[in-house]
Design a binder for these strands. Structure first.
Lengths: 122, 122
DNA sequence: ATCCCACCTGGAGTCGGCTCCAGGTCAAGC
DNA sequence: GCTTGACCTGGAGCCGACTCCAGGTGGGAT
């Protein structure tokens, strides 16, 4: 029961990020340099996977990579940046809220259009 | 009270699309060729603006341009494509629904993270 | 008359976010 | 002992969706 590690393939499988994307994220500094085995292959920790989960949330909610980098930076700088992190996430949460509202509004319009088409074609 | 027309500037203002984007959409065939005045400047009709409203809905809900082109194509082909248009919009509506669900799920995770940060920093 | 501003064109450039490639290394199964 | 498959690197390429540019036209206000 050594500290469990994961191969790139496993991580890709689990997080839904492609191998190339995982390498890309490491290259640009969104991931800390990932640990390696003797042969130089990446071995991800549970913590890396946790961080990737966060990345997944932020990406899926439309945060640009540049801003995720800022967030990653804050995380690296340690505990005293927590209020900044909260501020960043709250600002993002507000954008997500607006996004959902906009989607709902546009969806209603689309449904009205469908309704109109139905009324025409029957 | 001639049939009212609108300048590119007015349309941009009203629809939120940039002048360049309006020209781009016309170039790629997402808009029918827009009418011109004697000097060759575009004059949009009310109908053009209505169509741009539709475009706005579809774009804002994440439909790729390629698919909007397919939709535009159906509209051009006339009445007998209405059931196809319904099918296309319904499929899109389902994707929008999934999108909202995913956003909500990720938003919850983000809020939990904020909650966690709050608990740590107080 | 002249100025300015909104508009025109074709084509090139940008940007974000990956994605692909060539050429190479290891380790495990047949 | 050889093949296979997962991995490695640096760098180039791609895609979608605009956005910008240079150089030019036309018309309304001062």
């Amino acid at each position: 029961m050594s500290t469990s590690v994961y191969t790139p393939g496993q991580v890709s499988e689990e997080t839904g990020f492609s191998l190339d994307t995982l390498r890309y994220y490491e290259r640009i500094g969104l991931l800390e340099p990932i640990g390696r085995n003797a042969a130089g292959q990446r071995r991800f920790t549970q913590e890396d996977i946790g961080w990737l989960g966060m990345i997944r949330c932020l990406r899926d909610t439309g945060m640009p990579i540049a801003e995720m980098l800022r967030f990653a930076e804050l995380v690296r700088k340690g505990e005293h940046t927590i209020s900044d992190r909260i501020a960043l996430l709250e600002a993002h949460d507000r954008r997500v809220e607006a996004q959902v509202a906009n989607l709902r509004e546009k969806q209603t319009a689309i449904r009205n259009k469908i309704g109109y088409y139905r009324s025409v074609s029957c």
